[in-house]
């Protein structure tokens, strides 16, 4: 169990874990293991794109995130 003194460092490290795709890959692999249990014949490979971190957005690296106009 983490001690109270280690709480701040967990708050610092977890976002970097997530940003560098360690957590998403871990979750994806766990998901893939679960899916494989359900569907043993399924050979899909879990693929996770590198998530852009916080601050990403530039409300849409350009207008990219904005929906295309009709």
């Amino acid at each position: 169990m983490p001690t109270p003194s280690s709480l701040p460092v967990i708050a610092l490290v977890i976002p970097v874990f997530n940003e560098e795709a360690v957590l998403p890959v871990l979750f994806a692999r766990l998901g893939a293991v679960t899916a494989a249990r359900d569907r043993p014949a399924d050979q899909h490979r879990a693929h996770v794109d590198r998530p852009p971190g916080l601050g990403s957005s530039p409300s849409a690296d350009g207008a990219l995130l904005r929906e295309s106009p009709p």
Binding site: L54, S56, S57, P58, S59, L65, R66
Partner: peptide, 8 residues
């Protein structure tokens, strides 16, 4: 629309 993590 267009909002992202920078808003937080």
């Amino acid at each position: 629309i267009g909002g992202d993590m920078n808003s937080l």
